[in-house]
Design a protein around this nucleic acid. Structure first.
Lengths: 338, 338
DNA sequence: CCCACCAATGTAAGCGCATACATTTTAGTT
DNA sequence: AACTAAAATGTATGCGCTTACATTGGTGGG
């Protein structure tokens, strides 16, 4: 296809040294005299030589690349996380191969294999790790398998095991506190809206349940599973004729906005008659009118931290890392809460 | 790092054939007897052998990978485009390396080099190609350079040249029609909001200008440059004390929502006193209240088509492709227009 | 029954690089 | 000036694969 033709031998010939010297110059080895280094560099610059990564990889078995697996890059939360990761990784000279897995297990497995086959140095998984209760072992088997090859870092997931590291935000606590504060404000019927059984969604649900139980309410009835689309949420809620609630907590901002649409269609005053809290603090939250109170889970911080840990493991040769770190969330109050 | 150890020699030994035969089996060459093919396949399956892509790449100089360069993956439009591309590419056995370039030239150049160094088979650029008027040649030089190595496909950009192919949506026409319809409805002061000088933004601006001129209005005064953030747009407009408009056309939905916020802060009735039209028809458009009329530029279709053309060029050995195709846009009327 | 030919399989070269090890050059010491 | 240690540079191997070319074995025709 593209025959660069120009390789290390060409450079060696042009600058009158051996390929070993050229290689040393390229890799910044200090065992080269300043004179020859300069001489070789000039040639390299002049012809714009770049080493063939395949050849490099063949020998070194690494390509300075991190695989990032997301269920769907179209989700704004995932997209921003990928952006943060990429920005950070590049600073360390690592590149980023994206895998868009979809939500099903098969897709995840396939994409994981794909990424591994590219000889990534580490794998980062974002969200959507099922089996929070540890029961559904199948769903995490591919992660453990991957971890036998490269260190795996999970953002907002909880698979544990050898060579697996997780960074999570404290969703459970955040939702618990959000619900509790609503209760304190006298809300009687608080509902929790979620679209999945992901680890993160489960934690959020737990937070909700704990808050409800702490005041002697049953939580079960208040949990409603919805589709992650604004109008679907609205329509589903509107269709529930017996739905009576004065508070809604949503597992993401998209769903929260669906709830806002529901309340508005129903003619309910926000926040007087009904409070709504979203999650992720994305642009969606402020795009709405009224602007949605949302929980910020500090994605940027988590991503940066994750990259930091990856680098410590890869570059620094640190062989033990905390397997799990937690980052607290922050409630950003806006117009959908009192 | 990870020593798979198991290579083609191992497979050859285990199945009692030569590495050439194993390679032929792996690559589906028909020059293998059914008997030995089965024998080899069994071994391969049993031990889960996968060829080393570096070694493959070294010889073949391709890795079945497409590079995708975006200014920022955090932008929902870009993210969805990447998702479409990825989904489509995978069907053809191609993977996707992401480059998040930022908006500056240096970032684009660097990321382009990075992608090229990974021996991508083709490069896809999404949006944000400057120099729509052909004047700023520096800004597109890196694209032409890249095109000397691999075919370059540009989504919503207009660099032309050898080995460069573009798929564009008809923004100019869409905006022209949007503005014209507003005029027909009796709007007197229509304003155009944009955040960049990208090719696409320029086309949109042209559409606006053409519409204004067609009724003898000056367009220049109506063009307002804003920052691509909801609250920034709102605040900027609010700060313009002499701003009098009864129609706003925005170059994307984020900006359109900023305009909605402005109108609401100003106490203007939407759409009676002021109409607003956004662009991209993203989730943001329906997240807002009122829901924003927006122009759908058929990203999915464009992306699919792009992949289709890439494959025709790469697989099919087609050596001539239309250099530019256009896809019309569709106005999705909602609550911010009469 | 031998030869030609074809299908099946094997052999070996080369892709471009890093690097261990070998060799040469330089600098320092006496 | 002679010798040594250290620095600089060169040589050669191997990474795992694909593939052109070589070899083998079997088949049918003469």
């Amino acid at each position: 296809m593209n025959k660069d033709a120009i390789n290390i031998y060409d450079i060696a010939k042009m600058s009158g040294v051996s390929i070993a010297t050229v290689s040393r110059v390229m890799n910044g080895s200090e065992k080269v005299s300043e004179k020859t280094r300069k001489k070789v560099m000039e040639v390299i610059d002049k012809v714009g030589y770049t080493p063939n990564v395949f050849a490099q990889g063949l020998g070194l078995n690494t390509m300075h690349t991190i695989g990032v697996l997301v269920p769907t890059i179209a989700d704004p939360y995932m997209a921003s996380a990928v952006a943060y990761l990429e920005t950070e990784l590049i600073k360390h000279g690592y590149d980023c191969i994206l895998g868009n897995s979809g939500f099903d297990l098969e897709g995840k497995q396939k994409k994981t294999d794909m990424l591994l086959s590219k000889h990534i140095d580490s794998l980062v998984l974002i969200g959507s790790t099922y089996a929070g209760d540890g029961s559904d072992t199948n769903a995490t088997e591919y992660i453990r398998a991957a971890a036998k090859r490269v260190p795996v870092f999970i953002i907002n997931g909880n698979v544990n095991g050898e060579n697996i590291y997780a960074s999570v935000c404290e969703d459970e606590k955040a939702i618990y506190e959000a619900a509790t504060s609503m209760l304190r404000r006298g809300r009687k019927n608080i509902v929790f809206l979620t679209d999945s059984h992901s680890y993160s969604a489960n934690k959020k649900r737990n937070g909700y349940e704990r808050a409800m139980k702490s005041v002697g309410k049953s939580a079960k009835d208040g949990i409603i599973y919805v589709e992650n689309r604004i109008h679907s949420v609205r329509d589903q809620l509107l269709a529930m004729e017996d739905l009576k609630c004065d508070g809604i907590i949503a597992s993401n901002d998209m769903i929260a906005i669906g709830a806002v649409k529901y309340a508005q269609a129903k003619g309910l005053n926000i926040p007087e008659e009904i409070e709504i809290i979203g999650y992720n603090n994305s642009d969606l939250a402020i795009s709405c009118n009224p602007e949605v109170t949302s929980i910020d889970n500090h994605t940027e911080e988590i991503c940066k931290d994750t990259v930091d840990r990856i680098m410590r493991l890869l570059d620094g040769g640190v062989d033990k890392l905390t397997h799990k770190i937690s980052v607290p969330c922050t409630l950003i109050a806006r117009e959908t809460t009192v």
